[in-house]
């Protein structure tokens, strides 16, 4: 059975691979890190049990973190190979523009019913924020994590009290990252009506054409003007594939909500 080309290409397979690796390592890091922090609660002990206990949770956390940092460097190499100087500034780039700030405020105006929704181009400001939040988070959490993973090496180049600072910066940034991903990112990608029950773009590589037309009309107009529009249209993937994306996505949402709920419920019992 042939279906119409009713979807538009949005992410390449390499970009989707990056996202899946990031997701998996983020979840392992979040769970193992929380299990260490909450070790004196029953919830934390159970969580640490999944990784083989307090000590091995640290081992898993460290090596997953190093894997993620490696992935970050690979991503930077990928960027350097991929960056096109002609489009580095412009609507196809993820670099923030003055337009994004304007759209942010007019979007809020639309939420409140004051004005029309802004005509977004390829990347909305919230998508750019998600991308750069991971970027800045990786730098902060990666550096402090490496400092604590190799304290003997690190203290050759900095005083020992830097380890105290690194520990707290790592903790707070981790909470910020988890809360942002598990509440805001998941809500935007799953729960809002536009995407409900799930925005499959990052897994399938393409988005529903109707949805893009209503939310990102400027992108469609620009593609038509440039003549690239027809080349980007693709067919929907098989139902089996969609089922896999759906199950995988919702498992991740469930894990994320479980972690954030457990962390909040047991908040008072942590001995920092």
């Amino acid at each position: 059975m042939m279906t119409n080309k009713n979807r538009i290409k949005r992410f390449t397979p390499v970009q989707r691979l990056f996202h899946v690796l990031l997701m998996l390592s983020f979840m392992v890091l979040g769970a193992s890190g929380l299990s260490r922090l909450y070790i004196n609660t029953g919830w934390g002990k159970w969580l640490a049990g999944l990784f083989g206990g307090y000590e091995s949770a640290l081992l898993v956390h460290t090596y997953t973190g190093i894997f993620l940092i490696t992935g970050f460097f690979v991503h930077i190499l990928y960027l350097m190979a991929k960056i096109n100087p002609k489009t580095i500034i412009g609507p196809d780039s993820l670099l923030p523009r003055g337009e994004d700030i304007k759209q942010f405020f007019s979007h809020i105006g639309w939420f409140l019913g004051f004005r029309e929704s802004p005509r977004f181009d390829r990347w909305g400001y919230w998508e750019k924020f998600d991308y750069w939040a991971v970027f800045w988070g990786m730098v902060i959490i990666g550096i402090t994590g490496l400092i604590m993973a190799y304290p003997l090496v690190a203290t050759r180049y900095m005083p020992g009290w830097g380890l105290n600072v690194a520990l707290w910066v790592h903790r707070i940034e981790a909470f910020l990252a988890m809360a942002h991903v598990f509440i805001i990112h998941f809500f935007i990608a799953h729960l809002r009506r536009h995407n409900f029950p799930m925005d499959r773009a990052m897994f399938e590589g393409s988005t529903d054409l109707e949805a893009v037309r209503s939310e990102k009309p400027a992108w469609i107009d620009r593609l038509k003007k440039q003549g690239d529009y027809e080349n980007l249209l693709v067919r929907e993937s098989q139902p089996q594939q969609k089922a896999i994306f759906f199950v995988f996505g919702y498992i991740m949402v469930a894990i994320g909500l479980f972690l954030i709920a457990g962390a909040l419920v047991n908040w008072q019992r942590v001995i920092w």
Partner: peptide, 20 residues
């Protein structure tokens, strides 16, 4: 930094959800 992120994005996302 964490508080600022949430002060901006939490109401933003709730309003967005309601609007849609």
């Amino acid at each position: 930094i964490a508080v600022l992120t949430f002060v901006v994005f939490l109401p933003h996302t709730i309003l967005w959800g309601l609007r849609e």
